Amino acid sequence: MSRVISVVIFGLMGAAFLSALGVWQLQRLAWKESVLAEIADRIEAAPVDLPEQVDPAADRYLPVVVEGRFEGDAVRVLVSVQGSGPGYRVISAFEAEGRRVMVDRGFVSESVDLPEAPQGTVTVIGNLHWPNEVDGFTPEADLDRNIWYARDVGALATQLQTEPVFIVARELSATDAPLTPLPVTADGIPNNHLGYAIQWFGLALVWLGMTAFLLWRITRRSV
């Protein structure tokens, strides 16, 4: 009997612990959904002038409007877009009111030649962004072929001779065909807490099942 009691206590404690982890992940899910909602509201807010001093933490996703001219040659960053296949994000230097920043103009298929940027004065509406796309597996940029494998803001700023200020375009006042804008959204921000919660609750059920099986084995041996 003492062995049965020990198994029951151990089983219930283990299931309670695993269930508590599941509840914690549900709480994290609610928190993350709130954060994502705030980010979405920030992304879609009315654009403001580019801050004089840009803070990568405080100004992430800030909607801005800038007026100026595209300058110099663009760089291509290799990407794959669902429904469009492989291609490139096209990034150009942009002279705006005495400042030189970068603008991610959008996506072009790899089968299309790199288009020239719109000429003359252009108004760009977009969001400040510092993409986190570089890791230990990211290849070095192929400068001879003008192919980059990540939007590394610091390295791109050096290449294009700009400030490390990166604007992902949402709208341009001039036609930039055949490019398609790929604006910043909250869709790509991971939110896996529901999946984690289901895993913990599933493990709790498995734990209870194993406990019930062990009790069955014990009771059969005692008969």
Rank of each mutant, 00 (worst) to 15 (best):
V165N: 02
Q119F: 15
F94L: 10
R76I: 13
G106V: 06
G195A: 07
S84F: 12
V79K: 04
T175K: 02
F107S: 09
V108M: 04
V168C: 12
E71T: 10
V124P: 04
E171P: 14
P115W: 14
V206W: 02
E116Q: 05
V112R: 03
T123A: 11
M102D: 01
R105P: 09
E97C: 14
T185I: 05
T138Q: 00
V65T: 14
G120A: 01
H129I: 05
I125H: 14
L179M: 15
R105F: 14
A93N: 06
G83K: 11
V81F: 07
V134S: 11
L172G: 13
L179V: 12
E110Y: 12
M102G: 05
I125L: 12
V77D: 05
S173R: 00
A74V: 09
D135N: 11
L78G: 11
F166N: 14
G83S: 13
P190G: 06
R60T: 13
P164I: 14
A177T: 09
E163K: 01
D135Q: 03
P139R: 03
G68H: 04
L156G: 01
P164T: 15
V81I: 15
V64A: 01
A74G: 09
V77I: 15
V168T: 14
V124S: 01
H193N: 10
E133H: 15
V66P: 07
V165D: 04
V81M: 13
V168R: 15
V168D: 13
I125T: 15
A177R: 13
F166T: 12
L172P: 14
F70K: 03
R170T: 00
S92G: 10
S92W: 14
A157H: 12
A93W: 03
F107Q: 04
V79C: 08
G98H: 07
I198T: 03
I91L: 13
L172H: 15
R170L: 00
V184K: 13
T138H: 00
L156H: 05
P164A: 08
A197V: 04
E71Y: 06
W148F: 07
S111T: 13
L208R: 02
H129W: 06
D142E: 05
E163N: 01
A96N: 08
E116W: 08
R60V: 15
P183F: 14
